[in-house]
């Protein structure tokens, strides 16, 4: 029983989340005590479901782009041909993480204007770092015996990369993507200060009209999404590392 409890809780959270997004009015009595008499208790300036979907789409697009670029770069700097880039990329990763997301967002606005674009850029740049760091670690800490064995069986560099190195590094790379997605899910809400369509709209509407129910529903939806996605990634990683024999 104890083993299934976390999964049951996750399933329940998912069902409640979907129910709330599809039929938010069902939850009105729960949120009513949080607002003053006449204020609306459920976000009414747009559909919560479509905001959630565009929130997820923004995070997904940015993370996908960040993954392609970061893994590509990590593969490059771990080959002999790209070795000269290694010291700089390490220090860039360190420096990049000191840039606050809000600053990245604000600095992207002059370049591309308001809307989704600055949010995508900020999420992309901020998502690069954890993925790159993990991909680099994963690719450079492979057990030397296995890499040697692959070389010994006459595999070409390309075969070694696609058949041995990437599959073995995959769990570590996924951990990086998981970190990046969790950060992006929360950071995307700040995108609404520059007019991006994300759940941040609900929170900001709540802050502006002093409506606690709005702030709560926006925040909780994002947090539940983040926890569920985080757990899903962790589960996939566990399966993969068992297969890769890293456990």
């Amino acid at each position: 029983m104890k083993r299934y409890l976390p999964n049951l809780l996750r399933l329940a959270a998912l069902i409640i989340l979907i129910a709330f997004l599809v039929q938010p009015m069902l939850f009105e009595p729960l949120l009513k005590p949080l607002v003053q008499a006449n204020a609306p208790a459920v976000y009414n300036q747009g559909s919560l479901l479509s905001l959630t979907l565009s929130h997820l789409a923004t995070v997904f697009t940015a993370t996908l782009a960040a993954t392609i670029v970061a893994v590509g770069l990590a593969i490059l700097v771990t080959r002999p041909i790209g070795a000269e880039f290694l010291p700089l990329s390490r220090s860039l990763v360190n420096i990049g993480q000191t840039f606050p997301p809000v600053a990245v967002l604000a600095l992207a606005v002059p370049a591309v204007g308001f809307g989704e674009k600055p949010t995508l850029i900020a999420l992309f740049l901020y998502g690069l770092l954890p993925i790159f760091e993990n991909a680099m670690t994963g690719l450079s800490t492979l057990p030397p015996a296995i890499v040697e064995a692959a070389r010994g069986t006459g595999m070409t560099a390309w075969q070694r990369l696609t058949k041995v190195e990437i599959p073995l590094a995959l769990p570590v790379i996924l951990a990086g993507i998981r970190l990046s997605v969790t950060i992006s899910l929360a950071t995307a809400t700040i995108g609404s200060t520059v007019a991006a369509k994300t759940l941040g709209e609900v929170i900001i509407a709540g802050l502006q009209s002093n409506n606690l129910a709005f702030v709560l529903q926006g925040g909780v939806v994002v947090a539940v999404l983040a926890v569920l996605i985080y757990d899903a990634f962790s589960a996939v990683e566990r399966v993969l590392s068992r297969r890769a024999g890293r456990v």
Partner: peptide
């Protein structure tokens, strides 16, 4: 860990009450 997943603008707002 769960506190970390709450977006910062929401957490700031929730503490107002």
């Amino acid at each position: 860990n769960i506190i970390q997943t709450i977006p910062s603008i929401a957490l700031f707002g929730l503490l107002i009450a």
